[in-house]
Design a binder for these strands. Structure first.
Length: 266
DNA sequence: ATGGCTTTAAACTAAAGA
């Protein structure tokens, strides 16, 4: 009998991430998307609202627990989960930050880290220095967390297109943030902690992105970048059977400029 | 074309995003 007991780590799980670019504006999209895609865990970025205005009642009515870390106007992250969450941590304890860009929780034995990595603005800006310092500190923290939590996933908006094939027009992006060598090295350093980019574990369509510029009909021209990622430690990567980007909500009225990314664990 | 589009906060304009 005990041979057939299903333990938490054997449960089929779907993990997703979505930069919603204002939860106030996009709440109807989030609720509709969860109806169509009842994932176990959804990490959200760019809430752009304070915690007092987080739509907890609506999220709970949809069958989800929620933990969140918001601020006025900018940034803000949340984890929605069908299962209870424990050991919630807001921001990287190794990095003093006035921005709310990280929230972590343990769900069904999996350590989930939801990140909104800084944009960087331009390579010669103070914001780029901030982005690189932020990434360096994230690496240090994740390295330590992996020892405590062998089953660890980092989901979010990385604001890094890891390779040229993740960029609609690599020539047009030369010298821009999101594609520079230091940013790509920082992404590779995270993979170097023995993590897998879930999307690249599988055969994927060419030119599939997770963000498209609002301007100049970026989505219709497929002028996009793949900057939203799900990184998995080996024990989770071994269970990952699929990773997809869902372009459907990008076609809805008044969409976020990002699309959700979903990983399935067996 | 330091433009293009969207959001927020505030105030009829500016900052930030990517």
């Amino acid at each position: 009998m005990s041979d057939f007991v299903i333990t938490a780590s054997d449960k089929h799980m779907k993990l997703a991430t979505w930069n919603v670019n204002s939860l106030k504006v996009r709440l109807p999209h989030v609720l509709k998307w969860l109806e169509d895609n009842p994932v176990d865990i959804l990490c959200l970025q760019e809430l752009k609202t304070v915690d007092e205005k987080f739509p907890l009642a609506e999220i709970e009515a949809a069958g989800y627990h929620a933990v969140f870390s918001g601020q006025k106007t900018y940034n803000g992250v949340a984890i929605l989960s069908r299962h209870p969450m424990t050991d919630v941590v807001k921001n990287n304890p190794l990095f003093e930050d006035t921005h709310q860009r990280i929230i972590a929780a343990t769900i069904e034995g999996i350590r989930i880290i939801c990140v909104y990595i800084p944009n960087g603005q331009s390579l010669d800006s103070d914001k780029f220095v901030y982005k690189m310092n932020w990434l360096k500190s994230l690496h240090e923290w994740v390295k330590a967390e992996m020892v405590r939590y062998p089953q660890l996933a980092i989901l979010g908006d990385y604001n890094i297109a890891p390779e040229d094939r993740d960029v609609h027009d690599p020539a047009a992006w030369v010298g821009m943030t999101h594609v520079s060598a230091p940013e790509r090295n920082a992404f590779r350093d995270l993979l170097g902690l023995d993590m897998k980019d879930a999307f690249r574990m599988f055969e994927q369509p060419e030119k599939l992105f997770s963000w498209w510029d609002y301007r100049q009909m970026g989505f219709r021209r497929n002028a996009g970048l793949r900057i939203d990622h799900i990184l998995l430690t080996q024990p989770l990567a071994a269970r990952c059977t699929e990773c997809v980007i869902d372009k459907v909500p990008r076609k809805w009225e008044q969409p976020s400029d990002h699309a959700p990314v979903i990983a399935t664990l067996s």
